[in-house]
Amino acid sequence: MISIKNLHASIEGKSILNGINLDIKPGEVHAIMGPNGAGKSTLSSVLAGRADYTVTAGEVNFMGKDLLELSPEDRAREGMFLAFQYPVEIPGVSSTNFLKTAINEKRKYHGQEPMEATDFLKFMRSKMEEMEMDKSLTSRSLNEGFSGGEKKRNEVFQMAMLEPKFCIMDETDSGLDIDALRLVSAGVNKLRNSERSFLVITHYQRLLDYIVPDFVHVLYKGRIVKSGDASLAKELEVKGYDWIKQEVEAAV
């Protein structure tokens, strides 16, 4: 699915990622954990194509394509999806119109005809049912006046609509109470299948109680310093990050 090799990135001359190596195969769920400032959000931003970051070294292969050469929209059209930590409110752009535009731009990219309006509405209705989305959310302007939980659920709903192959969840749990966390996670779990891969970025272990990963990686100072299975997350929850920091410093 995606193969990241020796990825280095900086912002305003400050180096944040210092050689990330990561392979994600179809259907796998990888979690990236790490203390504040480790580079977790930078990794998601660089993968999604945010212009603020400069990639200084390394390569990313996304299903046979050089990801770093693609514009943000082409990355999405190739099947990448970033669930934002802070989804943007866009007054005046209706959720329906937005989704229709996004789906049809993707279809155009793949040489397909645009979806008929009635087919689109049927498709959207079925996805809303599947994801248990409230009708009022899609009739409003995109994310406008949504609560934190509604915004995150809307991200997952968009994911369901756009049917990506690879999803990055950027600290989806931040700002969610336990009920919202459960709803959002349930949505993500519905979208898990043997083809679709996930990169779940989180500071806390609790999200991983609901979205159980196949692999857990610890990011520290812009590098993956430890990898394991879901039990590593539990260990971090009990012991915190300090022991890893000490391990890393000791090795230097």
Binding site: E73, A76, R77, F98
Partner: peptide, 24 residues
């Protein structure tokens, strides 16, 4: 930020600009 959000959903820069200006 809204530009990037729209583009990250597969909407071209030009179309994203059009959507945002129309909304304005």
């Amino acid at each position: 930020e809204p530009m990037f959000y729209l583009r990250s959903r597969g909407i071209s820069e030009q179309e994203a600009r059009r959507l945002l200006l129309n909304a304005f």
